[in-house]
Simulated scan of single mutants.
Amino acid sequence: MNFKNKTVLITGASRGIGKATAMAFAQKGAKVGINFRNNLKEAEKTLAELPGECHQLFQQDISEKDGPEALIQRFVDCYGRLDILVNNAGISIFHKIDEVDFEHWTHAWENTFKTNLFAVSNLCYWGAKAMMKNGGGRIVNVSSRGAFRGEPTKPAYGASKAALNSMSQSLAKALAPHKIYIGVVAPGFTETEMAAITLTPAERENLLRESPFKRMAQPQEVAHAILFLASDGAEYSSGTIIDVNGASYLRS
């Protein structure tokens, strides 16, 4: 896969899967825009580690109503065009129905959908508009195995990712005439910096038992699938959802 001189915007790219994806694109010659919300220190660290030149930071809260349009416009103003958009940013809020009050419940649903679905749909809208002006492009949305298996302790997360999958496939049909191709990557639990901080030993052990590989996914493995969907030659995979979960959940 060669992305020489391609422009790539990745949301939530300061660490984890986003960082690994930024690194992978940069290694293949792309010019990478790193979107982040608050963590400037981590974003600057990621930027400094990217090989190649012409990479940029784009601080923007995509959950704000005008955030997606502003982000896409700033990116196009910087690079002149948008070739590839990777919607990786997302949030996950625990809200087990038999433990939380109604205020917490509604807060979790509203904020999860605001970031995981509404922001992504708006980024797809403005990203597609920019791509139409330049003859096409690629959009890759990052979903989750939770869209298929259910998330009992954070149902809004699972629901938002299921909706993301459906939206992506609808847009794959709608945007094909414009030579804009859309794919989805659905990771299982991934070994990120956040996982190392938040998981208890018992939770980690349970996760390791879920896959026959007896390990979690590495961010680079998820990035590999993202790059495939964004690559030349993958056009007829538009509308595809690629599972990257180490056979921890198999769907028919």
Rank of each mutant, 00 (worst) to 15 (best):
L9F: 11
I10V: 14
G18I: 03
A20V: 08
M23F: 12
V32H: 11
G33E: 10
I34W: 03
I34E: 09
F36A: 04
N38M: 10
E42G: 02
L50F: 13
L50W: 10
G52M: 08
E53S: 13
D61M: 04
I62R: 00
I62Q: 02
G67N: 07
A70Q: 15
F75N: 06
Y79W: 15
G80Y: 13
G80W: 13
R81F: 08
D83S: 07
D83N: 14
L85W: 04
I91T: 06
I91A: 05
I93Y: 14
E99Q: 15
V100W: 12
V100Q: 11
F102V: 11
F113I: 10
N116L: 09
L117E: 01
F118V: 14
F118A: 00
A119M: 06
N122S: 14
N134V: 14
G135D: 12
R138V: 03
S143C: 10
G146V: 02
G146P: 07
Y157S: 09
A159F: 11
A163M: 07
M167F: 15
S170K: 08
P177D: 07
K179S: 13
E193H: 04
T198C: 05
E205Q: 14
F213E: 02
R215Y: 09
A217G: 14
F228I: 13
D232E: 15
D232K: 14
D232Y: 06
G233Y: 11
V244T: 04
R251M: 07
